[in-house]
Write a protein that binds this DNA or RNA. Sequence first.
DNA 1: CCCTGAAGTTAGGTTTGCCTAATTTTGAGT
DNA 2: ACTCAAAATTAGGCAAACCTAACTTCAGGG
Lengths: 227, 227
Amino acid sequence: MPRLTAAVEDYLRAIYEIEVETGAAVNTAALAERLGVSQASVSGMLRKLAEAPERLVRHARYHGVRLNPAGKRAALEVIRHHRLVEAYLVTALGYGWDEVHHEADHLEHVISEAFEDRIAAFLGHPDSDPHGEPIPARGGRLERPDDVRLTDVAVGQRARVSRVSDRDPELLQYLGRLGLKPHQRLLVTARSPFDGPIHVQPDGSQEIYALGRRITDDVFVRIESQG
Amino acid sequence: MPRLTAAVEDYLRAIYEIEVETGAAVNTAALAERLGVSQASVSGMLRKLAEAPERLVRHARYHGVRLNPAGKRAALEVIRHHRLVEAYLVTALGYGWDEVHHEADHLEHVISEAFEDRIAAFLGHPDSDPHGEPIPARGGRLERPDDVRLTDVAVGQRARVSRVSDRDPELLQYLGRLGLKPHQRLLVTARSPFDGPIHVQPDGSQEIYALGRRITDDVFVRIESQG
DNA sequence: CCCTGAAGTTAGGTTTGCCTAATTTTGAGT
DNA sequence: ACTCAAAATTAGGCAAACCTAACTTCAGGG
């Protein structure tokens, strides 16, 4: 079996991630947006992936793609690379959590299994990356985190940040300044109506921050108790 | 200026290395061999490099290529990446010196300047890689090492290994087993006629090893004294 | 000085992955 | 049912890099 190209790995990773985020088949437009290519390019690539001998995906024309087992395996491998590299860059080389995504996007396609093994061992086989995203085990298995969007947390609830999208460095910088990193506990003190901001007080802070929808959609928490 | 592709970087690095090894213009066949591609591909690429707006190389049809300043700068940057990565993999991740070349071949094209800076700082800005090859400074300058092939060392001379070609893992394993790594002192005890083996005794060893031409051509030493 | 084999180049073709523009399909609203 | 805009696909192209096969140039020996 010929090695997968970087482009193919990017598509598989994106399909996996969007499939998890939405729980449904992934449509062309979403992929095009995520990958920064035209919809036509996505259409073409999806046909290739579906018709490849490994049958990486199944594609119902006009109705989205889903990963087949082989595609899912490959996607998880790339995601494992990506997240291990992110963790490594932060822990071993002192990168900020907002700086690692871009670098990992390139490195994920290039590192060997030996490299993967060595950084995993160095890090003590971590189970999540600096943004709280779980790191798939070698060759498979990634349990679905049981967390919810901060968007969906009711007033008065205490919660603990579980993970944050790693895709927007500016968002990460901002959240870092507020102290809203994984494991941080917080209290939802208020919600404005009509998708208005959600007010949040991190444990140990006097400040209360008003977070807009763009942010709360990208921050996931585990509920700790009713208030 | 559009980013250089990995292929272009590979060509520039190879041209630089061969130009240094031979001291002359680099011919198509040597490049094809080094890069593992056909001569036709080399011809095509050389025209592209020569005609690119940056004028990376000058190419006298049928008479070889040489790097122009822009090409040399780019080549040194890639070589810096390659050698820093090799040093990092050995020092930080416990790779063997025979394992790093292949990994570095991929990583060199992909790491950012930030990554380069961080590993250089981590390593304390080393001036040579695990095989003894000098690491170019940021943005240029690489002094020509004043060493000679082990092939050219006379009987009775003491010398110290300065560097070893990193391209053949099996050779590196073998040399490692003999203890012939950079900084190792040795004595040339005998030379057989007609390009026969050269006999070498590493300091601190009882053993004398007979090394064939294939090996002695790839091992460089600095002469320490006449015997 | 000419001939020839080796070295190098050109010609023409393939694959990969992207693009824009044109077309088709879908599905939501009347 | 029908319309029609949004979503998706197809058609046709382009740029990188590679290949093989055919041809050209070079340089050394007769």
